[in-house]
Design a binder for these strands. Structure first.
Lengths: 217, 217
DNA sequence: TCATGTGAAGCAGTTCACAGCG
DNA sequence: CGCTGTGAACTGCTTCACATGA
């Protein structure tokens, strides 16, 4: 009952949100919750919660609701968060180091096990729990640490080659912060976070209605 | 012909991509390009490019294609990138400082004009072009710098209050990196970037097919 | 009785296919 | 002729509304 292939990323992202919210509720000592209560407290949609969960099975009790801890546990399992994911950061500049520090405490199932950089000046530096290594050692580090996830924080012109290197080394999922269009190698799941695009989206809706709006006249 | 209100964020994000690609082409000396060529070179969809542009007017020449520089200029205008956006960073920890440095060189129309932090130990520190100021001065800084965009890089438990403070100070768009559900104050456009959710999405598709797949047997 | 789980309806976003124009 | 601009078809996601079952 787990069609992992055909699930939309939108659904998966919401599962993450539900899980986070359920953990909060569990900490507050709540034992049961209905989709309606969840929806109104965290402004989500009750029907959508039920539809999302329905893709994976039946988790609720009709007429009652959901068992908070049990549903949280089931979601962890569904998302694959009951495993550990060794993670390597490629590009230990400002952003790479900041993410390394961030993930030291907020990582959940992800553990930073290595960080590499091209610039010899940064090599040897301790960042959180790892020491920066030269990029040449990437493949060896991935092998020895068993890293399956990569974080790409290199300049845009170096992004594609480093993505290819990660793929060749055996990493299977990459979170990329470099701007520009990358081609995902076979067998690698690529997710882009583009700061510039996010800011430009905000700019668009900021300007919306000032520059040109014949109907507001 | 610019229905700025009713345009989907998906469309807006693609406009950013088109713009970036067109700038590249302009640098390479290309003068004209068809939607088909754009699509095949950067794997986009030709029909989608035309549909996206069609929401804002007619930019092409039938039988020929688009004038690269002209279309780029028009997209800049549409996205509102022909203006400058003073930007304030709230939370100058590791991530805030990293973003400040990043935006020093990659900012485009966005300019970091201030950074504040709660922790007195960080105050006074120079980061890129700004000096970290205490959070208490936020409203005054927004006023004096004219900041219209905020970047939130504070711990999750402080996120809502700082978002509210930004809104009260007059900031109209916020890019938030803190996890958790925030309530956007009236008149503020909020965009969330949640590292944890991105990683969990990757984890889901990584695990997909291992744990439970009756059909692969 | 009451909230889940779910077909059916509704809406949004994408792709198709071609009329229209340079 | 060739490519844009666009109605129409299609696909996928969300919301609705109710039958089902604890």
């Amino acid at each position: 009952m787990a069609p992992a292939g055909g699930v939309s990323p939108l659904t998966v992202n919401r599962l993450s949100i539900y899980l986070r919210v359920l953990r909060q509720l569990a900490e507050q000592g709540e034992e049961r919750i209905s989709s309606q209560q969840l929806a109104s407290r965290y402004d989500l949609s009750a029907a959508q919660i039920r539809k999302d969960l329905a893709q994976f099975g039946e988790f609720g009790i009709r007429g009652v609701g959901y068992d908070v801890r049990q549903l949280a546990a089931r979601l962890e399992e569904l998302l694959g968060l009951d495993r550990r994911y060794p993670l390597v950061i490629v590009g230990m500049g400002n952003l790479g180091r900041a993410l390394a520090h961030y993930l030291e405490f907020n990582s959940g199932s992800f553990e930073v096990v290595a960080g590499v950089d091209n610039d010899p000046r940064g090599v040897g530096r301790a960042v959180g729990r790892v020491t920066v290594r030269p990029s040449a050692e990437l493949a060896e580090l991935v092998r020895s640490t068993g890293a399956v996830v990569g974080v790409l924080t290199v300049p845009p012109e170096a992004a594609q080659e480093n993505l290819d290197a990660l793929a060749a080394a055996g990493v299977r999922a990459v979170l990329n912060f470099a701007p520009g269009r990358l081609r995902a190698p076979r067998g690698v799941r690529l997710k882009n976070v583009d700061l510039r695009i996010h800011l430009e989206e905000l700019a668009f809706y900021l300007g919306a209605g000032e520059a040109e709006k014949p109907q507001r006249r």
